[in-house]
């Protein structure tokens, strides 16, 4: 899922400059699961804003609403009545939701309340880690199910650099060396032979480097 975290209150307040009627809009999917921008966090932010506003003599009227998803038009439409008449919508969705909200409610001013961090897995309560970089050309079949693009600090494709020590990455002792994980997994799978092959320079065209990406599926369009 998409993992994000709430921005500091002060930054959100600054982005409201001049607004009086404000909607805090949550998203019930990824950011709700990672407890950054779901219905509960909407309540919390709205409450924080109201209290901060009282202390700062700011005149703002805060209302709350949450859509199941802000990256789907159908779900965004459910917020129509809530958005109406507002000066600013604070979207608590990921960066996708913020933009899609703005597009669907043009010319509404939409500001983010969440920093979108990465695509990750929920390792434990309150703990997430980046597992995918959406590079558009998955290599996991050859790397024992551990991604070298997202999980190696240097995105190396042909094995660990000289900084791998005791299973950890050179950048900090908390970060696992992806290539140690790949090596261990491939060894357990009896597929070490695969790691002796040289992987040629990859095309980053499918990644962000090819420009903003778009997916069209004709079979789904009818």
């Amino acid at each position: 899922m998409i993992v994000g975290e709430r921005k500091p209150l002060e930054e959100i307040i600054e982005s409201l400059e001049g607004a009086e009627k404000v909607l805090v809009a949550g998203c019930g999917t990824c950011v709700a699961i990672c407890m950054a921008g779901g219905e509960k966090e909407v309540g919390m932010l709205a409450s924080e804003l109201k209290m901060a506003a009282k202390l700062r003599d700011m005149k703002i009227e805060v209302s709350e609403a949450t859509a199941q998803r802000q990256c789907d038009k159908e779900y965004l439409d459910t917020l129509k009545d809530d958005v109406k008449g507002k000066d600013v919508v604070i979207s608590m969705a990921c960066g996708i939701g913020v933009q899609y909200m703005a597009l669907n409610y043009e010319p509404m001013r939409v500001v983010p309340a969440v920093n979108t961090d990465f695509l990750g897995a929920n390792l434990d309560v309150g703990e997430w880690a980046e597992y995918c970089q959406s590079c558009g050309d998955c290599v996991l079949a050859d790397t024992g199910g551990v991604c070298p693009i997202a999980r190696c600090s240097k995105s190396l494709l042909n094995g660990p650099c000289g900084g791998s020590a005791d299973g950890k990455c050179e950048i900090d002792p908390e970060t696992e060396c992806a290539w140690q994980l790949i090596y261990d997994r491939m060894k357990a799978l009896g597929r070490l032979e695969k790691l002796t092959e040289i992987r040629p320079p990859r095309s980053w065209k499918t990644s962000r480097d090819g420009g903003p990406r778009r997916l069209v599926r004709e079979d789904q369009k009818a």
Binding site: P8, L9, E10, M44, E48, M51, A52, L55, R56
Partner: peptide, 8 residues
């Protein structure tokens, strides 16, 4: 932490 941000 939230209170600090709010101003309490």
């Amino acid at each position: 932490k939230m209170l600090e941000e709010i101003g309490l």
